[in-house]
């Protein structure tokens, strides 16, 4: 029972790290980035290359996965995304889904279509028995990393000068510019961090979710559900939503395996009927 709860939390946390970047770009920058999963995949493949081919320790490769994906994100933002910020949502969707297909084909060509496995060090394998509850070490690591990230993100957005600038830039870019805020730079940094987080999520998730070139398409639905259910105006919304969905998904599959795969969708439908703006959202959309 508690093991299920634990697994659910770990799964939820993982969902959160991968999709919070999407919440940031979608909610704060009002930009529909369906290619978000491609950045997560990039993080996963970077870890595979670093750990399996270059022999770096797994833990050391995690920050690198974050950094590399953030750089890729920044480059894409400056060269490609910047042109579609002001376009309609439909154009953004078409542009980013195109990017997804290109990333799938590119990774397939370079790395092959087979599943990739990251070599996890032995001290992260297996379970610890904690008062009769089996706790997977790797899942514990996920919970720790993701917990820390959540706190850091919430702090950065709510209490730092950068967070305030970002919120200002989003609410009214023109006025923000007038006040001397470099809106473009703020957006670029935010986008890079969001991509980096996705990359970190992909790196952590490769072990549990599997990693192949179709990763961005397979998990797109999950990211979108998290963001829809959680609402996009804060970090806490997607966080709570990820936990609810993670626990719901794992528990549903354990107790009613016949309907296991529907639980996550049922939760989404119920929440959206009850609160169409998502769990935690300002009552009035912009």
């Amino acid at each position: 029972m508690l093991t299920i709860l634990f697994d659910g939390i770990a799964y939820g946390m993982l969902l959160f790290v991968v999709s919070c970047g999407l919440a940031v770009t979608l909610g704060l920058m009002n930009f529909v980035n369906l290619a978000h999963g491609a950045f997560a995949m990039a993080g996963g493949y970077i870890t595979v290359i670093l750990v399996n081919r270059l022999g770096l320790p797994f833990l050391a490769s995690l920050p690198l996965a974050f950094a590399f994906t953030a750089i890729i994100g920044a480059v894409f933002e400056r060269t490609l995304y910047v042109h579609v910020y002001t376009k309609s949502h439909l154009e953004q969707v078409l542009f980013t889904i195109g990017l997804v297909f290109m990333s799938v084909a590119a990774v397939d060509y370079v790395m092959g279509s087979q599943q990739q496995f990251v070599s996890i060090p032995s001290y992260l394998q297996g379970q610890i028995n904690f008062f009769g509850v089996g706790i997977g070490r790797y899942r514990l690591l996920i919970i720790l990393v993701c917990g820390l990230l959540t706190v850091a993100l919430q702090f950065a957005l709510a209490s730092t000068r950068f967070g305030a600038r970002l919120r200002a830039a989003v609410d009214d870019a023109r006025v923000a510019r007038g006040l001397g805020i470099n809106v473009n730079a703020v957006f670029a940094i935010t986008f890079a961090v969001g991509s980096g987080l996705a990359g970190l999520g992909g790196a952590l998730g490769a072990e549990i979710l599997g990693l192949d070139p179709h990763f961005p398409l397979k998990f797109l639905i999950y990211f979108l559900i998290v963001v829809t259910v959680g609402g996009t105006s804060s970090i806490t919304g997607p966080f709570i939503a990820s936990l609810v969905l993670g626990i719901g998904d794992v528990a549903g599959k354990y107790y009613v395996p016949q309907f296991g795969s529907f639980v996550i969708y049922t939760i989404m439908i119920v929440v959206l009927i009850w609160r169409p703006q998502g769990l935690f959202s300002r009552a009035v959309a912009k």
Binding site: Y222, Y254, P257, G260
Partner: peptide
């Protein structure tokens, strides 16, 4: 136990 074809995580099924 039947696992959905596009299944991200085997944890709950394995626990069962």
């Amino acid at each position: 136990i039947r696992v959905p074809l596009a299944n991200p995580d085997f944890a709950p099924f394995l626990q069962r």
